[in-house]
Amino acid sequence: MTVVYAAVFGRTFIPYYGGSLERYAFAVFIGLTVIGFFSATTSEALMSVVADGALLNKLSVPKTAFPVASVLANSFQLGVGMLPVLIGIGIASRVSPLQLLWLPLPLIALVAFCCGAGLLLSALYVFYRDIPSIWELLTFFVWVTSAVFYPLAIVPKRIAHIVEFNPLFAFVTTLREIAMGSAQPDVRLLGIGALEGLGALLVGIIVFRAAQPGFMDRL
């Protein structure tokens, strides 16, 4: 996918990336991986409780395990697949190795954020079976507004805050800053990412707990 974007949009956007197609490709790769992880894990977690309804009707098992497990299983790929590439990007961008030590923070926050979203969605899906189509629409909205393949600078000032309001913005931007060394990692943004992760996890757990007693009549 990164190659496709680089080929199609590369020439238009490279002025924003210091005239380097490589840097544009790095930025696209990081954006795509984050958004891909988000949409893959949340849509998988969404189904998890209902998909195992037959099992839940047989055995009494902790139900939170299902959405959390589907996010964590994907996180393994994030750890062994994306992290080395990010380090490679860091080396190629001549970023100091010390700065790369920041990498795990936004990644862990992203995983927590997806766990929270997964818990929330999987609980809602038990009650409302049309959630997947609504979620698909929302994910697409997040995807388009998260500055994956275009530089933030081309977004008109008036609507730029929509992009910054995007929940994935903090993760994408801090990962780019850290790995590509385009700027000092923005501590404020790192904090926002961490808070998003914690907040989502908290909301997810609370909603899931509250909804759980109603599960068995609907599975």
């Binding site: 009650f127 409302y128 079976r129 049309d130 959630i131 609504i134 109603g214 009549d217 609907r218």
Partner: peptide, 14 residues
């Protein structure tokens, strides 16, 4: 137990 929902398990319909 809750009897099957007349509105279906559907956010839009509800």
């Amino acid at each position: 137990r809750r009897s099957p929902d007349v509105h279906g398990n559907d956010l839009k319909r509800r």
